[in-house]
Design a protein around this nucleic acid. Structure first.
Lengths: 194, 194
DNA sequence: AAAGGAGGTTAACCTAGATTAATGTCACTG
DNA sequence: CAGTGACATTAATCTAGGTTAACCTCCTTT
């Protein structure tokens, strides 16, 4: 397993001794998934928090009409799971599925609680990354409210160029909350405007 | 100052010794605001995380056209601040303004960092409440995407009956991302449907 | 009691984006 | 290289919700 990306990521926020890093790694599992496989399935309890080492995944749910809605994408150095399901250990609302072959580092619920005991600094680490995630999530709420689809698309493109290249457009449309047809119209408009 | 609501709230998540509670309270300030006063103003650095002891506040921002958009309301036992501004100590994007005379318990940035040193359990406390806030925020993103205005209004009413009574309708419309006229139309429809 | 001002409603008209369905493009597999 | 399946585009029509503006209630304040 390639633990370096995870350790490097954690070092951005807290300092761990070598011993602590060893304990940490002993309680994390690396897992490889193939394109199309599910890391979380709605209805199951989400057992892991997943740190993405390589690959690309989507988080989505299906509404009453069976429509798929993409909530987020995750690529290298992102976290993905159904956090609501994970923290309460109740059935998941979301699916997390691989769009490419992917490798993730998995923290199970029990191992993570254990780790909080063994390395209390990790409470701080997860608090800090959650703060950031929460702020980003709030920002997304606003931007959805007060922008047109075109503005949201432009912002998405500017903000996540790595993702736009790797993901088919109908999924980007789903992420933006518009139809693939309307996204197509927007793209056409933008070409004319140049 | 009435510290009981805050202590009771914290006790839901972690156990503090009497001594720890004393330290905590020594680093928190109670503050009373009048209706209309601002707890956070956009452009200023947000200095506090605020726990609401009594009253009602709104968090909003103004867009390019000067339109006000309400992001959340806060009542008793809720937290309010501009977290993005607070954690980075950079100018706030939001305003937090009192809709009623309100009392809040304020954690300043410095005191909170100090408290994390003195009572590491507080890292855990804030991690847990942030997890919950993040999950709620994500849920709101979804519900905004995949529901009509009518569904969102009904859900808001069911979920926050305490708030609907205390806040004028044009603010609820702003929170729901619709115009007050359209909300009025919806309310009319709902009366006919019964 | 008159005059504002804050909030709420109604109605006529307008627009962003959805829906449906046909057509196009490309990559693969047999 | 024909055929299939996955993805993208175009165009016609429809609808949720916005905009504008007039009007209606209550409270306050003088």
């Amino acid at each position: 397993m390639n633990a370096q990306p995870l350790l490097a990521y954690i070092r951005n926020y807290i300092d761990l001794t070598e011993e602590e890093e060893t304990i940490l790694l002993s309680r994390v599992n690396s897992r490889k998934y193939l394109k199309g496989q599910f890391v979380v399935q709605q209805g199951d309890v989400c057992r892991y928090e997943n740190f993405v080492v390589s690959g690309c995944l989507k988080t989505f749910y299906t509404d009453q009409e069976g429509q798929e809605h993409i909530v987020m994408f995750a690529v290298e150095n992102w976290w993905t799971s159904d956090l609501g399901s994970f923290i309460t250990q109740t059935p998941a609302y979301y699916n997390v599925q691989c769009l490419e072959n992917s490798e993730v580092m998995q923290f199970s619920y029990e191992n993570l609680e254990q780790l909080y005991q063994e390395i209390p600094k990790l409470e701080r680490f997860f608090r800090i990354i959650l703060q950031k995630a929460y702020v980003a999530s709030e920002k997304r709420i606003i931007q959805n409210f007060s922008s047109t689809a075109k503005e949201r698309y432009l912002r998405f493109r500017a903000q996540y160029p790595q993702i736009e290249q790797r993901v088919p457009q109908y999924m980007i449309a789903s992420y933006l909350g518009i139809t693939k047809e309307f996204l197509s119209k927007l793209r056409h408009q933008l070409i004319l405007e140049q």
